[in-house]
Amino acid sequence: MAVHTPHRKSGYALYSQVAVLVLSLGACGSNNDNNNGDNNPEPVPEPGLVSCADTASCASNPPLEIGGERPAQVEIPSNYDLNTRYPLVIVLHGYGVTGSIESLYLGLDSRVDDKQVVLVKPDGTPNLAGTRFWNATPACCAKVAAAEDNSGEDYTQIDDVAYLRGLIEEAAATYSIDTGRITLFGHSNGGFLALRMVCEAADYVTAVISLAGSTFADAASCAPASLPVSVLLLHGTLDETIAYAGDEILGEAFPGAQETAMRFAGLGGCDDSNPAQLGTADVVNSLPGEETSIIGYTDCQPGIDVELWTIVDGPHIPLPWVPAAIDNFVDWLLDHPRPN
């Protein structure tokens, strides 16, 4: 069981129940038309990131596992074609689960064909108790992992940013990747890491969604943030694990959703002082009506969007999702390539 602050009930234990549910039900399908590279703006290739498509060296039947000693499972479209450049989607799981379970929970596997993407599902490092985690920020979750297994291990030495950068490079060298659309979808601990990648790997990453995640307590730690990245934050107001208003874990603070959104709006060159109301959406089937309110920041750098989707009365692990909402989230990622 994960260690957490005494006054806050942990949502990590719920993942075992969610895993059983998603494995038994499977992911919701999508009936939307394909959303492939031909239907999106022509992206700008990332500096220093070369795809095998650039050198005509992609294999027609590539391996479905990359990552070497830290393997990641990969899904490619059933009609995979070397003449197509596919957006890359990397799913980053929450504390204590795996990339495959998180992907099923979010319904991403079933959208590989519909959305014409390459999906990579890495796993965090297991602590000595076997619990997988990411070393994202001081609050989440290397310190939690060490406290859980009571081993005295210093898990803060794990460099998950370097691991993900290497995984992106290997994916680009292995699959026909559109290097102008390198996207992340992270949940909880994975949401923290997704946002850290905006800070430290903006030369690779082009768009990020963070569900129930947060960022560094000290805004100055988010560096170098060398290029603007589109960010969508999705967070429930009744999250009892990563509080919507911010809190601390084992003495390490993290900012709330609104503060986090404002910071990334600033990094995107937006006017962070007066976000605009963008309406409401029905995202979670178990909550009544259009329970999610959406704000967006204006005057961002060209091609950049930063949005905060607040799930009113939403928990740490929203369930079940409205299928169209997941379609919209994946579309949002794909519709935000690196600007020209």
Rank of each mutant, 00 (worst) to 15 (best):
T5N: 10
T5D: 11
H7K: 09
R8V: 06
S10R: 13
S10D: 15
S10K: 14
G11W: 04
G11N: 07
G11Q: 05
Y12C: 14
L14R: 09
Y15V: 10
S16R: 10
A19Q: 12
L23K: 08
L25A: 15
L25I: 12
C28H: 15
N31G: 15
N32P: 15
E46D: 10
P47H: 11
L49H: 10
V50N: 10
D54E: 14
D54N: 15
T55W: 15
N61T: 15
P63R: 02
L64E: 09
I66H: 11
A72H: 01
Q73C: 06
Q73W: 07
V74M: 00
I76S: 06
P77T: 01
P77C: 01
N79I: 00
Y80M: 01
Y80F: 04
L82S: 12
N83A: 04
V89E: 02
V91S: 12
Y95V: 04
T98H: 01
L104D: 04
L104M: 07
L106E: 13
L106I: 08
G107T: 00
S110K: 02
R111D: 06
R111K: 09
V112R: 07
D114L: 06
K115S: 11
L119V: 07
L119E: 14
V120N: 09
V120D: 11
K121T: 10
P122M: 02
G124N: 07
N127C: 07
N127Y: 05
T131N: 10
T137G: 01
A145E: 10
D154L: 03
I158G: 12
D159Q: 01
A162V: 00
L164E: 05
A172L: 03
A173F: 08
Y175S: 05
T179W: 00
G180F: 00
T183G: 04
F192S: 03
A194Q: 00
R196H: 02
C199L: 02
A207Y: 00
I209H: 01
L211P: 07
A212C: 13
T215H: 05
F216G: 05
A217V: 04
A217I: 02
D218G: 09
A219P: 03
P224F: 00
A225M: 05
S226A: 14
V231D: 06
V231C: 03
A243F: 08
L250N: 08
G251P: 10
E252Y: 07
F254K: 01
P255H: 08
P255S: 02
G256Q: 06
Q258T: 13
E259G: 03
E259L: 08
E259I: 05
T260F: 01
T260K: 06
M262T: 15
F264H: 06
F264C: 03
A265M: 06
G266C: 04
G269C: 03
G269K: 00
N274Q: 13
A276W: 04
Q277N: 15
V283W: 07
V283Y: 06
N285A: 14
N285P: 12
S286C: 08
L287Y: 10
G289F: 05
E290C: 12
E291F: 05
T292Y: 13
T292F: 13
P302Y: 08
G303L: 08
D305H: 07
V306C: 04
T310P: 13
V312E: 15
P320I: 09
D327M: 14
N340P: 10
